[in-house]
Design a protein around this nucleic acid. Structure first.
Length: 220
DNA sequence: ATATCGATTATCT
DNA sequence: GATAATCGATATG
C-alpha cells in the first residue's frame, strides 16, 4: 500500500481540485487537448459530486477544419464555439447521444475540444444509475465513461442543461479542474467517426489507459 | 414541408 | 466486424 500510494495513479485524486483558468482555453485546440489530458471533469449537484479523469480528447479547429461543426460558419447550434473560451458546447447526435466540448481560442475565432473518454473517480454508483448499468466486476466500469456519448450520460450532460455553461466556474455545476496529476505518455492518432479530414492526427489519449475508446489504437 | 446526415452505441454474428 | 436504432439541426423547395 505504501508503494502504491507513492505512484501517481490515474484512478485516484492527488490533491484537492482547483478550477482551470479561462486563459487555459484561450489557445489552439490542439494545445488545449494535449494539456487537458489528466485533468478532471466535475459535476457538482446539491448533494452529489461526480469526478472523473480526462483520458481521451479530440481537437476540432475552426473554419479551416472540414470535420469541425464550425466549418460552415456560425449557426444557432454551434454559436458557443465562436464565443469566449472555456464554455460547454453540447450537441445531440445519432438520435440518442449528447457530446461535450469545451470552446477554445478567443471570442470570434471558433475552436473546440471533444471529450471522448473519462476514468471515473468519485460517484461511481451515481454514474452507474445514470447509465443503467450494474457494476459486477471492474471491467463494468468501462461501460460508464468510455466513449463521448457514454460519459455524457454518466454525468447527466444534456444540451438543455449544459450547453453554454461555464466550465471554469464551480458555480455552473459542471467544470474542469486540476488535482496536480501529471500525465505520462500521450498518444496521438486520427480522429474517430469522421469522414472529412479523416487523416489529421488530432485525437489525444493517455497511453495504456483502459478507459480510452476505440478497440485497436487505444493502448499503443 | 420534407429530406438528409451524422464528432455513437448496443447488439447481434 | 457489421448493422440497426434514433431524432435534432440543417439545407432545400
Amino acid at each position: 500500500m505504501a508503494s502504491a500510494s507513492r505512484i501517481a495513479s490515474a484512478a485516484s485524486l492527488v490533491c484537492p481540485i482547483a478550477p482551470l483558468a479561462r486563459a487555459f482555453f484561450a489557445r489552439d485546440p490542439r494545445r488545449v487537448a494535449r494539456e487537458l489530458l489528466g485533468k478532471i471533469l466535475v459535476r457538482q449537484d446539491d448533494s452529489v459530486r461526480l469526478t472523473a479523469r480526462i483520458v481521451e480528447l479530440e481537437a476540432y479547429l475552426g473554419e479551416s477544419d472540414p470535420a469541425a461543426h464550425a466549418a460552415a460558419g456560425r449557426t444557432a447550434r454551434n454559436a458557443v464555439l465562436f464565443g469566449p473560451p472555456g464554455y460547454a458546447y453540447v450537441y445531440f447526435i445519432y438520435g440518442n447521444h449528447y457530446c461535450l466540448n469545451v470552446s477554445c481560442e478567443r471570442e470570434g475565432k471558433a475552436g473546440g475540444v471533444l471529450f471522448r473518454a473519462l476514468e471515473p473517480l468519485e460517484g461511481v454508483a451515481e454514474m452507474a444509475r445514470a447509465r443503467d448499468v450494474t457494476i459486477a466486476s471492474p471491467k463494468d466500469l468501462l461501460k460508464l465513461t468510455r466513449g463521448p456519448g457514454r460519459l455524457s450520460e454518466a454525468f447527466g450532460i444534456t444540451r438543455l442543461r449544459d450547453n453554454g455553461g461555464d466550465l471554469t466556474s464551480q458555480g455552473s455545476g459542471l467544470w474542469i479542474g486540476d488535482d496536480g496529476y501529471r500525465s505520462r505518455q500521450i498518444c496521438m492518432t486520427a480522429r474517430i467517426g469522421i469522414t472529412k479530414a479523416a487523416d489529421r492526427r488530432l485525437r489525444y489519449f493517455l497511453r495504456g489507459n483502459a478507459f480510452v475508446s476505440g478497440s485497436r489504437l487505444a493502448s499503443k
